[in-house]
Design a protein around this nucleic acid. Structure first.
Length: 637
DNA sequence: TGAGGTGT
């Protein structure tokens, strides 16, 4: 009979060097408990020689801390695989720390309050829901849950209410304990110089220390860069690159030369890219050291193509050191750049921005380029929006559309949505077509009909240049079902290599930037042109690529992709589907991002009823609570 | 309560 803790430990893959198969073979070799583990016994395993047995034995000993954690977890009826995360978050001393305070388990994202309570009951005997350690953990949990909606802070009252709902009696003591532990920070409301009155204490907020500190760091470092900047070149230098730039675009260039931190904003087609290219050209000619980056691999790749100057992800620029590690570039070892340009800045969250700013030495100029109307960052914070709202950082907003379709229905619709209005557009030329549908099954049928029949027939747009965009993966009008239906119509086949056939459209779901000749970036769409032995040849818009077996798991069918993944790409024809089940996730940025993917034709299959107009009307269906705008006004106002 | 990125 195998020791249950030992069995759980070996099955959870926590023994370094021991594969799944070998783990299953342990009982056969008579190893069913920790004290059976020795080199002499391990050598009885199939395919294990003396040397490997010795190595496995020592790696077992080194995994003792994880074993201790598994013992605690299994004793409480919890999954042993949590142990890896526990050790990562709590360190080698995790077992003792969990025994001291079982609610520390809540530091892991996958853990619920009920799980932590179970561990507490198992570990503490006589555990009490009024335990101050539980209250403290609940404060942090409440704040962490809020970060999933992008908030960096919550009002104190809201945290207290959440604590009461979990049965905590002394809520003030719980907040105090959380603040004293250092995990949580308390913030006074912004000081109002206009009034003599004390700030309202109910406006106090709480943050998780890591985000509270990141927000402080962003504000302080913006102020530092603003204060230490020297003009790079006289404004007259702009003339050299100014041909073809409109006045606002020229202003943006002038601003980069003068200001430590400046912003360049505007919707698709307003010439942000063009302006950035001019900035780069000018600075290169002056021999200025430049660093170009973007939050995603695809945006970085595009920035590089556009400027003809090397660009990387912000993470790579800063020398990111793995999942939990920090960045090699920081205040001690700043970036070797006089000017740093970051594109797609709407995707910057508060922690990455703090790291970026800390890595900018005194006198470095930073230009952030982005569109605040597009989808917000995944991580917490509202950096680009807060910088704009603060009013203390110079902003150039580009508003003039420079595309040939400037006066067209897509542009009118997009401009309306950007401003919060769902306008009726007249489109006799069928640049925009609204297709109402009842329910998501009908919506899905309409999509297939549009792509395979109506659009090519009536508008002479080839299906290969039409992209379907949907908010969701699941359901009849989600990416999964739509791709099945579209493959059946556009490129039927049985999927010889990993479900793909020559002619399939694919989308990348991870970066593989280092493959030979160019590699591909997350979100890039391509077409399969050939199959090899466990490999695929794919033509991405950036060039052809041979995708090895190891990277095939990061490709999916790409006729229909999510709005999130479509951000940053455009197609001649776009079909946007809004199924009823996506009603709850519709927001102005999502709708705006979806429809601005279209260059010449936009079909909207509308099955989400009143939710669409509501989403567009409300500024932000879920506004993010942050302190950054107020902090910036404090530092720079 | 959906969807989304980066790093070794």
């Amino acid at each position: 009979m195998t020791d249950p803790v030992f069995a759980a430990f070996t099955a959870a893959g926590l023994w370094p060097g021991l594969g799944k198969r070998a783990a299953a073979e342990l009982p056969g070799a008579g190893i069913t408990a920790p004290d059976h583990v020795s080199a002499d016994n391990l050598v009885k395993l199939p395919r294990v020689g003396r040397q490997r047995a010795e190595r496995l034995f020592s790696s077992f000993l080194s995994a003792a801390p994880a074993y201790e954690v598994v013992e605690l977890l299994v004793g409480a009826g919890l999954a042993a695989k949590l142990a890896a995360g526990v050790s990562e978050v709590l360190g080698p001393d995790a077992g003792r720390r969990l025994r001291d305070d079982p609610w520390r388990l809540l530091l892991l994202n996958q853990v619920s309050l009920a799980d932590a309570d179970r561990l507490a009951i198992a570990v503490l005997k006589g555990a009490d829901r009024q335990d101050s350690r539980r209250g403290r953990a609940l404060v942090a949990l409440t704040l962490r849950t809020a970060t999933r909606d992008g908030h960096t802070v919550l009002p104190v009252d809201q945290v207290l209410t959440a604590l009461r709902a979990e049965g905590v009696d002394d809520v003030a003591a719980a907040v105090l304990a959380a603040v004293e532990s250092g995990d949580v920070l308390e913030h006074e409301p912004p000081f109002d110089e206009e009034s003599d009155e004390e700030p309202d204490p109910s406006l106090r907020t709480l943050s998780l220390a890591r985000y509270g500190m990141a927000e402080d760091a962003v504000a302080e470092n913006i102020a530092r860069l603003a204060a230490t900047a020297e003009p790079i070149a006289p404004a007259s230098a702009v003339k050299a690159v100014a041909q073809g730039l409109d006045p606002a675009q020229k202003d943006a260039v002038t601003q980069v030369l003068a200001a430590g931190v400046s912003l360049l904003t505007g919707g698709p087609g307003t010439g942000k890219s063009r302006t950035v290219a001019s900035v780069v050209k000018l600075l290169e000619s002056k021999g200025v050291e430049l660093a170009l980056a973007a939050p995603t691999g695809r945006a970085a790749k595009r920035l590089e193509e556009l400027t003809d100057h090397p660009a990387t992800t912000v993470h790579r620029l800063l020398g990111a050191q793995g999942m939990t590690g920090g960045f090699a570039r920081n205040e001690e070892w700043p970036l070797d750049a006089d000017v740093v340009v970051v594109d797609e800045a709407s995707m910057l969250d508060v922690e990455l921005t703090a790291a970026l700013l800390e890595a900018c030495g005194d006198g470095t100029h930073l230009l952030l380029v982005g569109d605040p109307a597009q989808l917000p960052s995944i991580g917490p914070g509202h950096v680009l929006g807060d910088l704009i709202d603060s009013g203390v950082v110079p902003v150039t907003e580009l508003t003039i559309l420079h595309r040939q379709a400037a006066g067209g229905a897509i542009a009118k619709l997009a401009t309306g949505v950007r401003g919060g209005e769902l306008v009726q557009v007249d489109s006799p030329d069928r640049e925009v077509v609204i297709v109402p549908a009842q329910g998501s099954a009908e919506a899905a049928r309409r999509v297939v009909q549009l792509v395979t029949d109506s659009i090519p027939r009536a508008l002479s747009i080839d299906p290969s240049t039409v992209q379907v965009v949907t908010p969701v993966h699941r359901g009849p009008a989600g990416t999964i079902e739509l791709n099945k239906a579209l493959k059946a119509r556009l490129n039927p086949g049985d999927g010889t290599v990993w479900g793909f056939d020559v002619g399939d459209r694919v989308v990348a779901t991870a970066n593989h930037l280092d493959l030979d000749p160019v590699g591909f970036a997350n979100g890039e769409v391509g077409v399969v042109t050939g199959t090899g032995d466990g490999t695929l040849s794919v033509d991405f818009s950036s060039g052809p690529c041979t995708v090895p077996t190891s990277a095939l798991g990061d490709l999916k069918h790409g006729w229909a992709i999510t709005v999130h993944r479509a951000q940053g790409s455009e197609w001649p024809g776009v079909v946007v589907v809004l199924p009823p089940e996506a009603g709850g996730m519709l927001s102005r940025p999502l709708v705006y991002t979806a429809l601005t993917r279209a260059q010449r034709h936009l079909s909207i299959v509308h099955a989400s009823g009143a939710a669409l107009a509501r989403a567009v009307r409300e500024v932000d269906v879920k506004p993010r609570r942050t302190r950054l705008a107020a902090l910036l006004r404090d530092h720079l106002g």
